[in-house]
Design a protein around this nucleic acid. Structure first.
Length: 137
DNA sequence: GCCAACGTTGGC
DNA sequence: GCCAACGTTGGC
C-alpha cells in the first residue's frame, strides 16, 4: 500500500465535483515525473487531494480504483491516467500554511517541487496529515 | 496580476 | 548534448 498526493486546480475540477461524481478519471498529466508516479500507483493506494491556487489545502482522501491506462484525452501514448474514487473527506482541511509549520512535513514534494502534480507521500507524512485533519482512515 | 521556479523546446 | 528562450504553474 502506497500513499500519494495529487493537486487539483479547483477551477478545473474540485473536491465537491468529485463527491458528486463518486469517481473520476485522473487524466491530463503532461509532466514526466508526475507520469512516472502515476505509473507506480496500485489499486487500493490512498491518494490525498490537494486544492492548488484557491484554497491551498488538502481536503480529502481518495482511493485508487483503476491502475494506469492510456490517457483518454490524448492519442499520445506517452501519457497515462488513473481512476480515483471518493474515500473520505477530511474533517478539517489541512492548509499549506499548516503543512509548512509541521516539522515532519518539511520534505513533502508539495513544498519542494512546486510544479509536480502527482507525488508520493510517506506513511509517516500521511499519518501526520491525517491527524492534523482530525481524521481516521 | 506579478513573479519565481522550473520543465520543455529548439537552435546550434 | 548544451543552453537560451519560452511557457506554465502556483504562491503571494
Amino acid at each position: 500500500m502506497n500513499y500519494w498526493l495529487v493537486k487539483s486546480d479547483p477551477e478545473t475540477y474540485d473536491w465537491q465535483q468529485f463527491e458528486k461524481d463518486k469517481k473520476t478519471c485522473w487524466d491530463g498529466v503532461r509532466n514526466y515525473q508526475a507520469r512516472n508516479n502515476l505509473a507506480l500507483m496500485k489499486k487500493g493506494d490512498i491518494v490525498l487531494w490537494y486544492h492548488s491556487n484557491f484554497g491551498k489545502d488538502i481536503v480529502g482522501i481518495a482511493k485508487l480504483t483503476k491502475e494506469t491506462f492510456q490517457d483518454p484525452t490524448t492519442q499520445d501514448e506517452r501519457w497515462l491516467a488513473v481512476e480515483l474514487s471518493i474515500y473520505k473527506k477530511l474533517k478539517l482541511p489541512v492548509s499549506l500554511e499548516i503543512i509548512k509549520t509541521e516539522k515532519i512535513l518539511q520534505n513533502l514534494s508539495l513544498l519542494k517541487q512546486q510544479r509536480l502534480s502527482v507525488m508520493p507521500v510517506t506513511k509517516i507524512e500521511f499519518e501526520t496529515i491525517l491527524s492534523l485533519g482530525e481524521t481516521k482512515l
